[in-house]
Structure formats: C-alpha cells, structure tokens
Nucleic acid binder design. Structure first.
Lengths: 105, 105
DNA sequence: ACTTCATATGAAAGAATGCTCATATAAAGA
DNA sequence: TCTTTATATGAGCATTCTTTCATATGAAGT
C-alpha cells in the first residue's frame, strides 16, 4: 500500500461508476455472454452495450473470446470478486437497509 | 457474492471515480487531517475540498472527528485498504508501465 | 456581543459523460 | 460476391458532475 493510488485507480473506478456497466458485469458474473445476448438480458440496445463493454475490456475488467461472429465476454473474477466482496462487507456494516445509504438520498 | 452488485455499488464507485477525491483519500491515508490542512497539501481551495469530502463521508469511506473548530478527517482503512490492494495487484498484472493502461490512453 | 478562525453550503458556468441514431466493419453462408 | 448476422464506431444532444465564487454556519476567545 505504498503506491500512490490516485492516478492508477482513477480510470479503474470510472469504469465501474456506471449503472449500465455494473449491470453488464452483474450479468456476466452469472455466465459469459455475447453482446446481443447481454443486450437482450439488460433490455438495452446493442450499440449501447458495445459502447460500454469497450472501456471495461480496455481495463481488463472483462475478457473477450471470439467465436466466429460472436464475441463472448466474461468478467475478470480474480479482480472483481474481491472488490465486490469488500463492498458487500462495507455495505452490510454501513448500509443496513438493503443497499440504501445511511445518510440521505 | 450472490448479492446484486449493481445498485449497491454505484454510489460507492461514483465516489471514488474522481481525481480530487482520490487525491484527498491518498493524503488522508498518510495521516488524518483537517480540511484546511488537506486543502493546503492538495493545493486546492477549501470549499472544493469540503464539497468533495461530503460524499465520501456520506458513504463512510472517510470518518470525521470534531476537535473544537477543526474537523479531522480520516480514511476508512478497513474498506479502502483491501480495495486499493486489489487494484494494485490488478495493475501489476495488466498495467506494467507504471500505471499506464495496456491498451491505449 | 463581537471578532476571528474553520468549515459548510448554494448557485451558476463550464466540462465531461452517457445515450441514441445512423452507419461501418467483419465473419459466414449461399 | 451478395446477403445476413454480429459487433463496433462516430457524431450530436441531453444530462450530470465538477469547480468556483460568494456567503452562511459554528466554535472559541476577548
């Protein structure tokens, strides 16, 4: 923990700070999927899903595997599992009412 | 990891996806500080620091302790240490050139 | 009560993001 | 090569976020 987190982390968090991308990750955690499959599950346009997968892929938060025409995306569990586990612990402690922040909203 | 990460995590990441707030966290990791002290270290205005500390406090990513006029802020290490440790591991693997993303700026 | 120091808050301008629509690329089959 | 299917890309609008400036609150000392 001596490394300066600032620059290193900014893009990382930017990527995760978006409901669409989080929803995509959530679905991909259940199982790897193609873009259209993901779009269907999320109820959103293909182009939007594609746009949002791009930065996630660039930061290696998800991986891609091409099967002919289809591109199968999967989450980088090694990184994302511990992150979400930590947040869940945090939430259990500070956000008792099912994900609602203690202080306001 | 059965909990849906989406809604729970969004605000959490929004908070961290900001250079000013990350810089503040970075400084507070070294030592707890007052707002003015932090503003001085960061080279930024007091009001800006104050504005940015507010959401971090609301999400319990930092804590506050009032000493008379001064408000001493400190990081929630229990949550932030494992998060930053995970990111650092991720970065070591995928961002070899000192925090630079593999796949283009 | 008044002054000073420390922090918080409000509003508004500017910048950055996200989403949508249209279109481009790319692979596979006829 | 033409068509179809799957995904990616680009531009523009709308929205949200960030920052700044001005001001308010609040605590402590005189």
């Amino acid at each position: 923990m001596k490394k300066r987190p600032t620059k290193l982390c900014h893009r990382f968090f930017i990527n995760l700070a978006n409901p669409t991308r989080l929803a995509a990750i959530e679905q991909l955690m259940d199982k790897p999927m193609s873009v259209n499959e993901l779009a269907a599950v999320l109820g959103q346009e293909q182009s939007m899903v594609s746009h949002n997968l791009k930065p996630l892929l660039q930061c290696n938060l998800i991986t891609i595997q091409r099967q002919g025409k289809k591109h199968i995306y999967a989450v980088n569990q090694e990184t994302l599992n511990p992150i979400f586990a930590t947040i869940q612990t945090h939430a259990q402690k500070y956000c008792p009412a099912g994900g609602k922040c203690l202080k306001g909203e």
